[in-house]
Amino acid sequence: MSLLVICFDPSELSQVAGFGASFGTYDVLLLTGEAGNAGASKIHVANLVEVPPADNIGKSVASVAANYTHVAAVSSMRAKDLMARVAGINQSAMITDVVKVFSETEFERPMVAGSVLARVKAESTPIVMTFRPAGFDKTVPGPNGSVESISISDTGRVKRVSTSARQGGRPDLSQAKFVVSGGRPLKDAATFEQVIGGFADKFGAAVGATRAAVDSGIAPNDLQVGQTGKVVAPDLYIAAGISGSTQHMAGIKDSKLIVAINKDGDAPIFDQADLGIVGDLYEVLPELEKALS
């Protein structure tokens, strides 16, 4: 048994130790940036300037992965893009969004918008996985055994013409301790930014949104939380003007405290929130901001 954890950038290094511990020792392949503590036996540093399109590095990464029985990465869109490609190249079994490790071959993962937890058995190795760090101990990783550089080659077949990443300096949703999310009633992008963004900035919180908000152009797509968006696990999640659909709740179940603000006392979110208040978000949020300040 041997585990390789692929990290896209150094921010992921601190998230692997809890998962890695379930396997004993592990190596890390860091695609961009400089090595930091990851508690790895060996860290392979590829030193790429940016992560190329999955197609371009798939084979090269797969050839490194082929030396291991288990290959994993923190769940994210880029991980799903690359890891399933690597699994396809190496003819691996693949388990998406692992939240628990029972044994070298049995894992737990949510399915059907988080409404069930499945115990899944891999029938053969190699096994490729993506995992959700929230399911594992927040072990602070120690130093690595050794650091070695490795070359990951880029075929250049797919050309990246441009990227647009949102700036703004807000915390990363999937790692934030405090998330404030808004839904469809936020009307338009300016209102969303002012009401939800303004509240969040007061407390250094991350901002999230429902699909309904994203669909209506109220919030950018990368803020979508849920089954088909991001999964968050903050200490405090405030849902303002969110009905509480299964698909949205799938992304927030690991939150320690869920607070719902909804003007409809019968909204399904009240069945799943720890604390709820029936009221108009446009009145409640400013008052809450004052009360918490």
Partner: peptide, 16 residues
């Protein structure tokens, strides 16, 4: 290459 051994309900949150 993989199969589900068993399904469990997602744990319900204690009533809020």
């Amino acid at each position: 290459k993989s199969s589900v051994v068993s399904f469990a309900p997602a744990p319900a949150r204690p009533p809020g």
